[in-house]
């Protein structure tokens, strides 16, 4: 058995999960379980939202440590589910290490939904949330168009690799500005409902949920850092909307 190969596989599985928006404790747990397949004397795994360290040691092998830094994160819950499934299969012995490594490479290459779908979905999310928060059919249509524009702008920001916080602030500004502009042109519409609905696609849902779940599992460092991330994203969006309102309202 090649222990380096095993360690590489475990870390890579963890890396894909962490990059895709899994909870830190789940990543730690997955790596731990994969490494526990062989009875090493000591296994230590330490994961934070920005990096993974794992060490294995036994009498017959040299102590091996691997560190992996995570730079970019995108939300790919499909990959989280697939890697989770694969690691379970491996731990239960249903798949060999070689096959698992091949499978992992395939999972990493799965492409996300088409940009066109994501853009229209951003619009639809905005539109339906506007109804959920009490908007009428005119608000629905306005949110739909704002959401689609927001979706296009977000794609652009991702391609430009703009910082998340700046992107959300500009997104908030765009939503606020367009909502005020369109509601002033079209009668019997409500800009509150439209703004609240249209900012929903930017809400840091993964950061909020993972912050809570990581804290519970005793991963306090990750809990705090994800909580801070969620808080600053919220502040960025609010600032963006506030600038739009401040610029518009005096007129």
């Amino acid at each position: 058995m090649d222990h380096k190969l095993l360690l590489n596989f475990a870390i890579q599985a963890g890396e894909i999960m962490l990059r895709s928006g899994a909870e830190t404790y789940r990543v730690e747990d997955t790596i731990m379980r994969i490494l526990s397949v062989y009875d090493f004397e000591s296994i230590e795994v330490f994961v934070t939202p920005t990096g993974i360290i794992a060490t294995i040691d036994d009498k017959n092998i040299e102590m091996t440590t691997k560190l992996k830094r995570i730079n970019s994160r995108t939300i790919r819950l499909d990959k989280v589910a697939l890697v989770n499934d694969l690691s379970r299969k491996y731990v239960l012995g249903k798949i060999s290490l070689q096959d698992a490594i091949e499978e992992l490479k395939k999972i990493d290459k799965i492409s996300p939904y088409q940009p066109l779908i994501l853009i229209s979905v951003t619009g639809l999310t905005s539109a339906f949330f506007t109804i959920v928060f009490g908007g009428n059919y005119k608000d629905f249509l306005i949110s739909l168009s704002i959401g689609i524009i927001l979706g296009i702008i977000q794609r652009l920001f991702i391609n430009l690799q703009l910082s998340r916080f700046l992107a959300d602030m500009l997104g908030g500004f765009l939503v606020g500005f367009l909502a005020l502009l369109l509601t002033s042109i079209i009668p019997s519409t409500n800009f509150d409902n439209i703004i609240i609905g249209s900012i929903m696609p930017m809400v840091p849902g993964v950061a909020i949920t993972n912050a809570i779940r990581d804290t519970i599992e005793g991963n306090l460092l990750s809990g705090i850092s994800r909580g801070v991330e969620a808080f600053f994203v919220a502040i960025s969006i609010a600032t963006g909307v506030a600038i739009a309102l401040k610029v518009w309202l005096p007129f």
């Binding site: 790919r76 819950l77 951003t122 999310t125 009490g134 696609p201």
Partner: peptide, 21 residues
């Protein structure tokens, strides 16, 4: 009822944004 149906679609589309399979 309209709000609850909208909540279904809002969550459905939101899940696509997060690339749920």
């Amino acid at each position: 009822i309209l709000q609850i149906i909208s909540a279904f679609f809002a969550t459905f589309f939101f899940a696509i944004l997060f690339n749920v399979s």
